[in-house]
Design a protein around this nucleic acid. Structure first.
Lengths: 185, 185
DNA sequence: ACCTGAACACCGTTCAAGT
DNA sequence: ACCTGAACACCGTTCAAGT
């Protein structure tokens, strides 16, 4: 049922996500939906949560590769669900799915050697930058820019974040990770 | 009338911005609004545009001071109008007011000595980062964080952007601006 | 346990009519 | 030029009733 709501949003926009439209897609009357959600706000919450489900776990690899893969996946999710994605800015990472995504970024920063005292803030800044770009693109702020231009912007954003993380890291040059990071297997 | 709509949004949230609510505030019937806006979407567009009006022109000072002042002003505007501000992500800088804000960032980057070939992209990245943070804060994504924490995050974001701009700049050390920037008076 | 019909208050929008 | 009353289609939500 949340999938039906997401489908309506993807195909006809957020305004078309109506109790009636979702119900029709399920061959049911609008009132039947109230068995499964408290009200329309709850339905939208569920749809956003479903979108979060699509964020894949980060692949193995260096912290930079992990972060790059996550950023690309998040942007792709925004492009698939442009009318729902911007709603992510309204929700703190309270659900387990949202926390999982946040913790993935956290782990990558940890592996990068970011100082423990700064890692939470660094996570917020990195996540916000990626989310802000993806939401802007999805919501239409960049609608007058070419896909090629936006791809280049996104690559530049990733580079800027990578340099930020490196500057926040205690590791200089190519030394081994410091003591607080888990020892290599 | 746009001011009445913005006031309703600020006091009771975006969902409360109803043709009826705005009309009531103006001591008029809902239908009277259609003399001034084409439809409700047009009303919301106008309200967003009005919000843009509040961005002050950048003060005199170094490019870093100008940028910092603009970022602070944008964030303050988001805090004043939390339910309208996130709508900014939906609009490209097509109106003259929006272009003025964008050009202010552009000018600061120019003064900073950012390479002409990269200045437009740098403007998008810097603006998107600031907008993304302010919109996240306004929309509620950081609702579980203290004001103090968010102030620190915002300061860190500004620092990160400053370092990014410096790295994009051709100016090394304390030399005078290069040839393409206007000569000092 | 799940769904429906009828009903209610509310919303956006139109149109002809009023001043 | 600006505003209103009446009307229409649509929306979210409730509640008692149905299977």
């Amino acid at each position: 049922m949340l999938a039906a709501g997401l489908a309506v949003a993807d195909e006809k926009g957020l305004d078309a996500v109506t109790m009636g439209a979702v119900a029709t897609r399920l061959n049911v009357t609008p009132m039947a939906l109230y068995r499964h959600v408290a009200d329309k706000a709850d339905l939208l919450d569920g749809i956003v949560e479903l979108l979060l489900t699509e964020f894949p776990p980060p692949p193995a690899g260096s912290w930079a590769d992990q972060l790059a893969a996550m950023a690309v996946a998040i942007r792709a999710s925004a492009q698939r669900h442009p009318s729902v994605f911007p709603l992510l800015l309204q929700r703190p990472a309270t659900t387990s799915r949202a926390r999982l995504a946040r913790d993935s970024v956290y782990s990558a920063l940890q592996e990068a050697g970011v100082d423990v005292a700064r890692i939470e803030q660094a996570e917020r800044l990195v996540s916000t930058a990626i989310l802000g770009f993806a939401a802007s693109e999805a919501a239409g702020r960049f609608r007058n820019h070419s896909r090629r231009q936006l791809d280049a912007d996104f690559a530049a954003l990733q580079g800027l974040l990578r340099r930020f993380i490196e500057s926040e890291s205690r590791i200089v040059g190519n030394e081994r990770p410091a003591a607080t990071t888990p020892p290599a297997p």
